[in-house]
């Protein structure tokens, strides 16, 4: 298991290669990559992601441990960036490794749902007109109910 909260970019290909080789009885890996999306007017200059140092790592680790136990995962990886990011940049990745695909898919979705609304990150979008804090989406909160 690994959780990394970092300013720097990462190489998802290398990360997945390392991840695949971590346990020999893995039959399925699901990975998710989150990208800085431009808005409909294409006016996004950059995004600033603020975090709560100390709590971020702890909160994510708690959900990773829960996922590993609940779906008997062989391994799980979360990398989440903070700081200044530009349209098209990678924000984060999640990977889960299981013996079978169902557990890998389910646990990856679980982790994504929890990262969305329970990991202490706040996104600020800087556009040509000014800036605004990205508001949380009610659907994201609701999607936790299914777990």
């Amino acid at each position: 298991m690994r959780v990394s909260v970092q300013l720097d970019d990462f190489d998802i290909g290398k990360e997945l290669d390392l991840f695949r080789n971590s346990k020999s009885n893995t039959g399925a890996i699901v990975s998710f990559q989150g990208i800085v999306r431009n808005n409909s007017e294409k006016s996004l200059l950059n995004m600033d992601i603020e975090q709560y140092p100390g709590m971020t790592q702890k909160a994510i680790s708690k959900y990773v441990v829960t996922a590993v136990e609940r779906w008997s995962l062989n391994d799980a990886l979360v990398i989440h960036r903070h700081g200044k990011l530009f349209p098209g940049d990678q924000i984060m990745m999640v990977a889960t490794a299981a013996m079978h695909r169902h557990d890998a898919f389910q646990s990856a979705e679980f982790l994504m749902d929890y990262l969305k609304s329970r990991a202490p990150f706040w996104k600020k979008e800087i556009t040509k007109k000014g800036y605004h804090w990205v508001e949380s989406v009610l659907d994201d909160e609701k999607s936790l109910e299914r777990w």
Binding site: Y52, K58, H80, L115, S117, A119, K123, W133
Partner: peptide
């Protein structure tokens, strides 16, 4: 102390309290 809680939570001996809008990670 870096754990999400409700506004009626007790502070007894807490070292840290943080206030913020709903998170927007991922």
């Amino acid at each position: 102390d870096q754990e999400l809680c409700e506004f009626d939570a007790r502070l007894n001996g807490a070292l840290e309290v943080a206030f913020f809008p709903p998170m927007t990670g991922g």
